[in-house]
Structure formats: structure tokens, C-alpha cells
Write a protein that binds this DNA or RNA. Structure first.
Length: 470
DNA sequence: CTATGGCACGGATT
DNA sequence: AATCCGTGCCATAG
């Protein structure tokens, strides 16, 4: 036993642990912020340029071959799943620039969002409004939302708020429709207006989008119906319309099924933390699991900084030493975060492979505690790693990672399908009995709960007209 | 009288 | 220790 080993480790461990915890609970987006702020504050921290694989154009670690193209894909024999995640080094697959995912129209032309929108709007803008439009477009966040208020813009440009509104209204009509809105609801309203020219819009759509978006995302259709004094059926119609046609985040291409099992207030899913897809997007190919690290390039301690430390005085040197230590710590912690995520995802993806490649029905009941045990990690670690994170599935839907722990999703889906397929309206009791035949035993009351969770009407309000299908 | 939704309790989960 | 989920009981609507 070495007696002095604690000298080195004891001081770093507690800080290390605490920071790892913090980083682990961060989403990709939050981590990005954190890294960016550290980069600007800590001169010792360095971000080196990205490398791409010549074959697949994928981002690479600073040294070594491409993990996809050169790696023999035999992580597990009968589950051909490839895991990409940073270990020693960092790299990231950026969603927009990955050539396999041509999802955003302006990404394929490789111009940025502001230019893309401005190009469309240019013809309709008065020359004196061009600057204004450019200014507005440069104050969008990654979802395409306005980050400043109309009043601020007005003050800055010495223009009337109404003039600003006019320009914004014009910009909202550009692709991606609804861009420059300040809330998801506003964006969706803009989309409705645009759609109304080419298709019929269900009654009350505007009202519901404007005032009841929250309830829609929680599937509280009956409440909405009551407040608007309309039928639940109509609300459902609108809800379906919303999910199928509207996108609350204009600059993001996809809106996953926003069912929120944890009931928390976060019904907002933008940038996923993990990607799962088939290699080259061909179903049947191995699954690729990619953990997103929101930084382009490799994070490291700047060797030049380290070098130049030798040639400065004592007091300066110790101050710099601090920076280097902090940088090292941050990098280590991020590595650990990535490692924990990787461990977790490895298990998760294998267990829930059915769900990932199949449907909601195939979700396996799972608790965080089970996973924690198998990974020999603390339950709270799993909790932190899962909470708030999202994952993009091969079908391009973005769902919360917590969905893998949704015990009732599979049963809810079975119920939903059962109701869709049967010709005679089934009562809750009948559903319960049918489920029992499939080996699922739940209380009649629970059937009712699941049914309303899925926004399905009670039996007597559910007349099946023979002509309608789907 | 039957089916459903509301409230609340207890056990599991985090 | 706090929270979530399934369930039972009861009032109410059809």
C-alpha cells in the first residue's frame, strides 16, 4: 500500500465527483453552454479542430481510424449494435451536418438559418427594412425563436413596434414557417395560417393552439372541451391535426410524439442527447447509437499554455496551474459523463431494442433501479443520466429518454390498438378481460386511466361508423 | 342499473 | 424523503 497516494487524489475526488454529478444531469444543450462559457473563461482549455472520416464524412477523434468504417462490428454477436461515444477524446456528430440525416432543407444547402430566411424574404422586403430583418434573424435561437422582444428591437432601431411586427409577420411566412415567433404557440399559429391556404383547418384549431397547448400535450382533451364548450371529439380532431401538421419548433424538423409520462413541465424536446439509427439509414443494418457531445472538435488542455507556463514567474505560474487543473477536471468529468451515458445506453438499447426498431407496444417494463444494479452504478446516477435527456429514434422521433422506463406505455398502446381495431365499442371492463387473456392483469379503473391518457373517448361516445377507417 | 370519472390512499420508485 | 402510479370506493351521467 502506498501511503502517499491520497495526497494526489483526495483533493480532486470530491470536486470531481460533484462536478461529474452536475454534468451528468445536464442535457446536451446545457452542456454546450457550460463548455462554451468555460472555453471563454479558461485560457488553458482548448478546442481543436474537427476531423472527418474520408469515407463516411463522420467526425472523428483526433487520432485513430473511423469507428464506423474500420471497426469490425461485433460488439455483441447476435445484437449488431455499434456504439459511438467519446472515451479518451471528444468528437461529436452534429445533427445538422451529418450527411446521413438530410432533414433540414437549409442544411443541405449548407447555409445558415438567417441567410436562408432572408433570401426568401428579400423580395418582399422594403429596402429600408432589410437591415431590420437581418437584425431580427440574427437574434434567433437554435429552435428558430426570437430571443429578444419587439420593444427592444424597436428601441434599438428607432422604429415603431408596429413596423417591427409587420416585418416579423412577413418573416414568419418564410420556410421554416413560423420562424421568428417568440413561442411555440405563435409559430404553430403561423403554420395554421399558411396551411389554411392549401387544406381545411379543423374548427377551433386556432383557439386551442393559442390557449390550450399545454393541455393538448398532456392529452387533457376533456378539460379543453369543457372550457371551449365543444365536444371532446372535436378537440381530438384538432389534436391529431396539430401533431400531424404543426411543428412547435420551426427550425427543428421533427416533433416526436409528445406524450409526457413523467408529467413534468418539460414538454419541450429540441436537440436530442442521443441518436439511434440504422447504419446508413437502411433498416436491417446494424443499429448505431451515438451519444451527442455538443462541441465540434476535441476538448483538451492547451499544450501551448502548458508550455508557456514554464517561462513565467512564480505567482503567475501558480495561477495558471489553477486554470490547467480546472481544465483537466472539466475534461475528466465530461469523459465520465460520456462514459456513464455510454454504459447506460448500451444496456438500454439492448433491452429496448424491440421498442426502438418496432413500436410502442414492444416497450419492456423497466425500472431505473434494475439498470443501476446491472451496471453497478448508484440509482441516482441513472436518474441524473436519464432526467431531461432526449433520444432520437431511427424513425426520427425525438422522445425523452425516460420513456424507456415507462411501464405502462406498452399496455397503453395495446389498449389503443385494441380500440382502433374492434368494430363494436368496447367497455373498460371488456378491455380488462381481453387484456387478461393476453396475460396482462390490471384493474378496470386502470384501463380507464390509460384510455384517457391516450385521449380515447369513453365507450358510449365512441360510435364506430362502418365507412371510416383509420 | 351500468359505465365512467374524481378523490384519495398505499406501495413502489426515484 | 418526496413523488408517481395503480387501485378501490363512491357519486354521477346515460
Amino acid at each position: 500500500m502506498l501511503q502517499h497516494q491520497w495526497q494526489v487524489t483526495s483533493t480532486t475526488t470530491s470536486a470531481h465527483l460533484a462536478q461529474t454529478m452536475t454534468l451528468l444531469s445536464m442535457t446536451a444543450a446545457e452542456l454546450q453552454e457550460k463548455i462554451e462559457s468555460e472555453l471563454s473563461n479558461n485560457p488553458a482549455l482548448d478546442l481543436v479542430e474537427e476531423r472527418r472520416c474520408p469515407m463516411c464524412k463522420r467526425l472523428l477523434p483526433p487520432s485513430g481510424p473511423c469507428p464506423i468504417c474500420s471497426q469490425p462490428m461485433s460488439e455483441t454477436s447476435d445484437d449488431p449494435i455499434v456504439f459511438i461515444s467519446p472515451r479518451e477524446d471528444f468528437y461529436t456528430g452534429s445533427l445538422a451536418s451529418s450527411h446521413e440525416i438530410p432533414d433540414e432543407p437549409y442544411a443541405s444547402e449548407s447555409i445558415d438559418l438567417p441567410s436562408y430566411v432572408l433570401r426568401q424574404a428579400a423580395a418582399d422586403l422594403r429596402p429600408e427594412d432589410r437591415m431590420l430583418a437581418a437584425y431580427i434573424l440574427n437574434h434567433l435561437d437554435e429552435d428558430g425563436f426570437l430571443t429578444i422582444s419587439v420593444l427592444e428591437i424597436a428601441r434599438y432601431h428607432h422604429r415603431l413596434p408596429s413596423e417591427i411586427e409587420e416585418v416579423i409577420a412577413l418573416l414568419k411566412r418564410c420556410e421554416p414557417i413560423g420562424v421568428c415567433s417568440s413561442t411555440p404557440g405563435e409559430a404553430m399559429l403561423a403554420q395554421i395560417e399558411s396551411l389554411s391556404e392549401v387544406m381545411p383547418i379543423p374548427d377551433l384549431s386556432r383557439e386551442i393552439v393559442r390557449d390550450h397547448l399545454q393541455q393538448v400535450s398532456q392529452h387533457h382533451y376533456n378539460e379543453i372541451a369543457k372550457q371551449l364548450k365543444t365536444s371532446v371529439k372535436q378537440v381530438q380532431l384538432v389534436a391529431t391535426f396539430i401533431v400531424e401538421n404543426l411543428n412547435p419548433f420551426p427550425a427543428r424538423a421533427h416533433w416526436g410524439d409528445v406524450r409526457n409520462p413523467s408529467g413534468s413541465s418539460s414538454e419541450v424536446y429540441h436537440q436530442p442527447d442521443v441518436l439511434v439509427y440504422y447504419l446508413n439509414d437502411k433498416p436491417g443494418n446494424p443499429l448505431v447509437v451515438e451519444i451527442i457531445l455538443p462541441v465540434r472538435g476535441t476538448l483538451r488542455v492547451n499544450p501551448l499554455f502548458k508550455e508557456s507556463m514554464k517561462s513565467v514567474g512564480e505567482e503567475q505560474s501558480s495561477e495558471w496551474k489553477d486554470d490547467i487543473d480546472k481544465a483537466n477536471l472539466l475534461i475528466k468529468c465530461i469523459q465520465q459523463r460520456s462514459n456513464a451515458m455510454k454504459l447506460l445506453l448500451e444496456k438500454l438499447v439492448v433491452i429496448q431494442k424491440g421498442y426502438i426498431t418496432g413500436s410502442d407496444k414492444d416497450m419492456v417494463a423497466l425500472t431505473r433501479a434494475t439498470i443501476a444494479q446491472e451496471l453497478e452504478l448508484h440509482e441516482s446516477t441513472i436518474s441524473r443520466a436519464v432526467s431531461g435527456k432526449t433520444i432520437q429514434l431511427p424513425n426520427r422521433k425525438i422522445v425523452p429518454l425516460a420513456i424507456f422506463f415507462d411501464r405502462s406505455l406498452s399496455i397503453r398502446t395495446i389498449i389503443k390498438e385494441m380500440i382502433e381495431h374492434e368494430t363494436t365499442p368496447l367497455s373498460d371492463t371488456e378491455i380488462k378481460e381481453r387484456l387478461e387473456k393476453d396475460g396482462i392483469t390490471i384493474a378496470r379503473r386502470t384501463v380507464a386511466k390509460y384510455r384517457s391518457m391516450e385521449g380515447i373517448l369513453p365507450t358510449h361516445l365512441r360510435q364506430k361508423s362502418p365507412g371510416s377507417s383509420g
